[in-house]
């Protein structure tokens, strides 16, 4: 029992060392390109406005010099508002790989643009729902949904969104977006769904 433990430890060390090298390299390659381009492609104007406001938070000097105060008319009804921001891609759900809770580059881009919108609309809070596809077991999937919702939450707080504005709930596989037992339905259901909720 003790011998195998040591053996496995050594094997583990080697395996991890092997895994480390490509991890470091690939991440260096991926980072500067993907997220930046995706963001500017999809939501150019919003990110600009949002960016101005970020500066407002840290550099009080420029508060009054904001050149383009955006006066975008937002629907007052919450359902309508959620449809509005999702359709325009201002707020976007993060999708996950099978049995994964780590954020892909696409998911990061979606959350980045959502963070921008939240920054420029500080009067709203966000509910993050964690969902999974139907292929796993229900009980473990509830826990996986919780993890996904919180991965998204942590990413948003890392982007500077106040944690007090973000609430999470897991639905596991209990409330699927798409029905059907095929990959297109499954991939639709593996997500952190962002819902704008009440004003502060």
């Amino acid at each position: 029992m003790k011998n195998t433990m040591m053996k496995s430890f050594t094997v583990g060390l080697i395996l991890i060392a092997m895994a480390l090298i490509p991890a470091c390299r690939s991440s260096r390659k991926a980072k500067p390109t993907t997220p930046t381009t995706t963001v500017t492609e999809t939501v150019p104007d919003v990110s600009a406005t949002a960016a101005t406001e970020t500066v407002v938070d840290t550099q009080t000097d420029f508060v009054r010099e904001d050149p383009r105060p955006t006066t975008e008319e937002l629907p007052t009804d919450l359902d309508a508002l959620n449809r509005y921001v999702q359709e325009r891609g201002h707020v976007r759900d993060a999708f996950f790989g099978y049995d994964e809770s780590a954020l892909s580059a696409d998911a990061q881009a979606a959350l980045t643009s959502s963070a921008n919108w939240l920054r420029s609309n500080p009067q709203y809070n966000l509910l993050i729902e964690g969902h999974t596809d139907e292929r796993g077991t229900e009980q473990y999937n509830l826990a996986l949904g919780d993890r996904r919702a919180n991965t998204a939450r942590q990413f948003l707080t890392a982007l500077g969104i106040d944690g007090n504005r973000l609430r999470t709930v897991s639905y596991g596989e209990e409330r699927p977006f798409a029905t059907g037992s095929n990959e297109s339905a499954w991939s639709q259901n593996r997500r952190a769904h962002l819902v704008i909720v009440g004003t502060r």
Binding site: S27, K31, P35, T36, S47, A48, A51, T52, T54, V55, T58, Q59, F62, E65, S101, A102, L103, Q108, L111, T112, T151, Q154, F155, A158, L159, G160
Partner: peptide, 23 residues
């Protein structure tokens, strides 16, 4: 002003990316 904003955002994003990379 805008360039500062972009830089700040990139800074935040890279730290957020780091978090998910650890995951």
């Amino acid at each position: 002003n805008q360039r500062i904003a972009e830089q700040t955002e990139q800074l935040l994003r890279s730290s957020a990316t780091l978090v998910s990379k650890v995951d």
